[in-house]
Amino acid sequence: MTKTAWVFPGQGSQAIGMGIDLLEVPAAKAKFEAAEGILGWSVPEICQSEEDKLSRTLYTQPCLYVVESILADLMREKGHQPDLVAGHSLGEYVALYAAKVLDFEQGLRLVKRRAELMDGAAGGQMAALMGFDREQLDREIEQTPDIVLANDNSSAQVVISGTPEAVEQVLANVKCKRGVKLNVSGAFHSPLMAPAAAEFQQVLESIPFVDASVPVLSNVDPTPAVEAAALKDRLMRQMTGSVRWREIMLRLPSEGIERAVEIGPGKVLTGLIKRTCPDIALENISGVEQLPD
C-alpha cells in the first residue's frame, strides 16, 4: 500500500463558491446544518456571498474547516485512510478532526472562537516574501524588534509578521523578488497575538482531546505525535508560534510518505510540496468531482 499523507490548506486558499457541490450530498447537508447551529450563519451562503464575506477572517476560517472536514469524511466513506495528517495553520484543526482527536462540533467551536479573536486583532501587519536570501532575512529578523518569521512555507516563500514599522523595515532592507503586504487584521503567528492566545486557551482547555488515530505533524513542532496532551499543547502554541510548513514537507519522505492528498480548495500546498519533495505523488480533492472511486 502507498503510504499517504492528507494535508489541509489554511486561510488564503478559500474560493468563492467552494463547497457548493457538497449541498447535493445528504451527509454533507447535515454537517452544514449542524455548523449553522453553532455559528449562527450559513456556510454555503457565505461561500456564495457576492460581497465576498468569505475573505474576512471571521468567516474564512469556519468555512474552510467545515468544507475540508466534509471532504475528509467523504474520502473515508469511500474507504480511503491517511497514514499521517498535517494542516497549514487553520488546516491543523481539520487535520486533528481527520485524525479523530476531536469531533466535528468540538473542532468548529474552537475554530469559531479562533476566528473571532484573530478577526478582532489589530495593530499588526503581515507580508509575504518570495525569492530572497535566507541568511540575510534571518539576520534582519534577528536584528529588528517586534517581528518574526510567521510562515516558513518553503525555501523560496515566507511570511513575516509584526508591527507595521518592523514589517516596513524588513521589506526595505531585504532584497527579494517580490514582497507583498497581506490583507489581514493582525500580526498572526507572532507574539503580538499573545492576548488573543490567552483568551483562546480558556476555550481550548474546555475541549477534551483523545489520542490521534494516525500521527499528526503540527505547525509549531513538525515531528509526528499521537498523544492527546502533546497535540493540545502544540495547538495552544500555534496562535503565537511560527507555521513550520517547510519542515513539515521535508519530514514527509523521512516518514515514508509516497503520496500527499491536499483536501480543500486550491492547490497551494500541492505546489509547495511539488517544489520541495518532487518524488512525492500529489492529488487534490477540492470538491465532489475530484473524490476518488
Rank of each mutant, 00 (worst) to 15 (best):
A5R: 06
A5N: 07
P9M: 08
G10K: 01
S13L: 05
G17N: 03
G17C: 05
F32K: 03
F32Q: 06
A34S: 15
A35V: 00
I38Q: 05
G40K: 02
S42C: 14
C47E: 01
Q48T: 11
S49N: 11
E50C: 13
D52P: 13
T57I: 02
L58R: 14
Y59W: 14
V66M: 07
V66P: 00
V66L: 06
V66N: 04
L71Y: 05
A72D: 00
A72I: 04
L74P: 03
M75K: 07
M75L: 15
M75G: 03
G79I: 09
G79F: 09
P82T: 07
P82E: 05
D83M: 00
V85C: 05
V85A: 05
S89H: 06
G91R: 03
Y93C: 04
V94F: 04
L96D: 00
K100A: 10
V101I: 12
V101M: 06
F104R: 08
F104E: 05
K112A: 10
R114F: 06
A115F: 08
A115N: 10
E116C: 11
L117D: 09
M118S: 02
G123L: 13
G124A: 11
Q125A: 14
M126C: 08
A127S: 12
M130C: 09
M130F: 15
R134D: 10
E135R: 10
E135S: 12
R139V: 08
R139Y: 10
E142R: 13
T144I: 02
P145V: 14
D146A: 13
A150N: 06
N151Q: 11
D152E: 15
D152I: 14
S154N: 09
S154Y: 04
S155C: 15
Q157S: 15
I160P: 02
S161C: 12
A166E: 05
Q169E: 13
Q169F: 10
L171C: 14
A172G: 13
N173M: 08
K175P: 05
K177Y: 11
K181F: 14
N183M: 15
F188A: 01
F188R: 04
M193R: 12
P195M: 02
A197W: 00
A197K: 00
F200M: 10
S206H: 10
S206P: 09
S206C: 11
P208I: 09
D211L: 02
A212H: 04
A212S: 10
V214I: 09
V216K: 05
S218A: 09
P222D: 05
V226A: 02
A228D: 08
A230V: 12
L235T: 09
M239I: 15
G241L: 08
S242A: 15
S242I: 06
S242M: 13
R244F: 02
R246V: 11
I248A: 05
I248V: 12
L250K: 12
L250Y: 11
R251M: 09
P253T: 07
S254K: 08
E255D: 03
G264D: 05
G264R: 01
G266T: 07
V268Y: 04
V268H: 00
V268W: 04
L269V: 10
R275E: 08
C277M: 12
D279L: 07
I285R: 00
S286K: 03
G287H: 06
P292K: 03
D293T: 14
